[in-house]
């Protein structure tokens, strides 16, 4: 990518950043302070995101178990991980912190249960 228009999320000011690449050099514009430079360069070179979603659960009070990633995923893999979670199904009881999927898609990131769900059957 050679140009990215985004908003810095480091502080509430929310500077509108334009990050451009020229001769392998990144240039950040629109930043009010220097933290915006690091943020902008990371967003264009290696953006990462945490993901939260749900998986199917049987025998619990609700039909979905909320889950989260214990680390950040490369941004472009969010939809791949969502796809990988599509067919995951667990049975109650589940405890908060249980590993639901270990090392999802070889990312070294685990999918963790956000809450305890008791078996009500």
């Amino acid at each position: 990518m050679n140009r990215l228009d985004t908003i810095c999320t480091i502080c509430p000011r929310g500077c509108r950043l334009t990050v451009t690449k020229e001769n392998d050099q990144y240039n950040v514009q629109g930043n009010f302070c220097k933290r915006g430079v690091d943020y902008g360069i990371k967003e264009i070179t290696r953006p990462v995101r945490k993901l939260t979603s749900t998986v199917k659960i049987k025998g619990a009070m609700y039909s979905r178990l909320p889950v989260y990633t214990d680390n950040e995923l490369p941004k472009e893999m969010l939809f791949d991980v969502m796809k990988a979670l599509e067919n995951v199904e667990v049975n109650a009881p589940v405890k908060a912190g249980d590993v639901i999927v270990a090392n999802v898609l070889n990312t070294n990131v685990n999918i963790i249960s956000s809450r305890t769900m008791n078996n009500i059957e």
């Binding site: 945490k50 939260t52 989260y68 908060a96 956000s114």
Partner: peptide
């Protein structure tokens, strides 16, 4: 909180980042 499955909760109260259900628990 039980339906707010996203994270970003708890930084001030529990000093760690939690999901909504995690905060409730």
């Amino acid at each position: 909180l039980n339906q707010c499955i996203h994270n970003g909760f708890g930084m001030h109260y529990f000093k760690e980042e939690l999901t909504g259900p995690g905060f409730a628990e």
